[in-house]
C-alpha cells in the first residue's frame, strides 16, 4: 500500500515536472507559433537568478517566485524586441536564431559563474510514508504545476486580456483592424512565456546541481512535450506531460533513470510518427 502510494506520487510528480518545464514553451509555441530553442537557457537563467539571490540573503521563496520570473521575463522582452520580432512567421529561422541565443546565454553564464556546479538546499523537508521516504518538495512542484495551469486557463478564458490575446493569435490582421496592436500583444505574450520559464527554472533550481549547460536537458523534454501535445495549449500540454511523465516514471521504476529518459525520447518518436501534428490534433480537437 505504501509502495503504491509512493509510486502514485512519483508518477504525479513526473507529470507535474514535465508540465512545469514545458509551460513557458507551450505559451510561446501554442500562441505565437514560435519555437524558442533558448527555452532551456531561460530556465537555467531562472535557476542562477534564484541561487544568486539566495546567496545574497534573500528569502528563497521570494527569490524563486518573484525575482527569477521578473528577471527572465525582462530578458525575454529584450530578446523579443531585438531578435524574434523580426522573424514572426518564419518558423525555421526563429528556431535557428533562438538556438544562437541559447549558445550566447551559455557563454555569458560560463563567463560570469564559471563552468562549475552551484546549488542551494531544498527548502521543504521530506517525510516518511511507511518504509519509504518522500521528498516534500515534490508536492510543492505538483501544487505549482496545478496552480499555473489553472491560472493560465483562467486568464485566457475569463479575462478580457486573454480574449484579446487569443483573438490576436487566431488572426492578427482582424485583431489589428479592431484596434488592437498585435505587436504589443506578441510582446506581452512572449514576456509571460519567458517569466513562466524563469519561474520553472527557479523551482527546479534546488533539485539539480546547476551548470551553464544544464538548459539543454530541459530543452529536449519541453520541446517534445509541447510538439507531441499539439495545437491546443492547455490540453495539449497536459496530454503530452501525462504521456511522457507516466512513461518516464514507470520505466525508471522498473529499470534505471537513464532508460527512463531514453524511453521518453523513443515514445516521442513513435507518437510523432503516428500523429505528426501532435496528440490534440486528433483528440480533444478545438479545446483550449
Amino acid at each position: 500500500m505504501d509502495l503504491f502510494f509512493v509510486i502514485f506520487v512519483e508518477i504525479l510528480y513526473g507529470i507535474a515536472s514535465l508540465a512545469l518545464i514545458s509551460i513557458g514553451l507551450a505559451v510561446v509555441f501554442g500562441m505565437m507559433k514560435v519555437i524558442n530553442l533558448a527555452h532551456g537557457e531561460f530556465m537555467m537563467l531562472g535557476g542562477y537568478a534564484t541561487i544568486t539571490a539566495v546567496n545574497l540573503g534573500i528569502n528563497v521563496f521570494v527569490a524563486m517566485l518573484i525575482i527569477a520570473p521578473l528577471l527572465v521575463g525582462v530578458i525575454g522582452l529584450l530578446v523579443e524586441r531585438l531578435v524574434i520580432r523580426h522573424l514572426y512567421g518564419r518558423l525555421v529561422d526563429t528556431m535557428l536564431a533562438t538556438w544562437g541565443l541559447s549558445l550566447f546565454f551559455i557563454g555569458i553564464v560560463t563567463m560570469i559563474f564559471g563552468n562549475t556546479t552551484t546549488s542551494i538546499t531544498t527548502p521543504i523537508r521530506g517525510f516518511a510514508v511507511g518504509n519509504y521516504q518522500i521528498n516534500g518538495y515534490n508536492f510543492f512542484i505538483i501544487f505549482m504545476a496545478c496552480l499555473l495551469l489553472i491560472a493560465i486557463y483562467a486568464v485566457l478564458k475569463i479575462t478580457r486580456l486573454g480574449l484579446i490575446a487569443r483573438g490576436t493569435m487566431q488572426s492578427a490582421d482582424i485583431a489589428a483592424s479592431l484596434g488592437y496592436n498585435s505587436d504589443h500583444i506578441y510582446m506581452v505574450t512572449f514576456f509571460c512565456g519567458a517569466s513562466l520559464t524563469g519561474l520553472a527554472g527557479a523551482i527546479f533550481a534546488p533539485l539539480v546541481g546547476l551548470v551553464p549547460t544544464s538548459g539543454s536537458a530541459y530543452m529536449a523534454e519541453a520541446f517534445i512535450t509541447v510538439v507531441a501535445g499539439g495545437p491546443s495549449l492547455i490540453i495539449g500540454l497536459l496530454s503530452g506531460a501525462t504521456a511522457f511523465g507516466a512513461i518516464n516514471q514507470i520505466v525508471t521504476f522498473t529499470s534505471s533513470a537513464v532508460l527512463g529518459e531514453v524511453a521518453i525520447l523513443v515514445a516521442a518518436v513513435i507518437i510523432l510518427r503516428l500523429i505528426p501534428k501532435g496528440i490534440t490534433s486528433r483528440f480533444f480537437k478545438g479545446k483550449m
Binding site: V83, L96, A97, W99, G100, L101, S102, L103, F104, F105, I106, G107, I108, T110, M111
Partner: peptide, 9 residues
C-alpha cells in the same frame, strides 16, 4: 559560445 551564438543570430 558567445561568439558562435552571436554569429548565428
Amino acid at each position: 559560445a558567445i561568439i558562435m551564438g552571436l554569429i548565428l543570430v
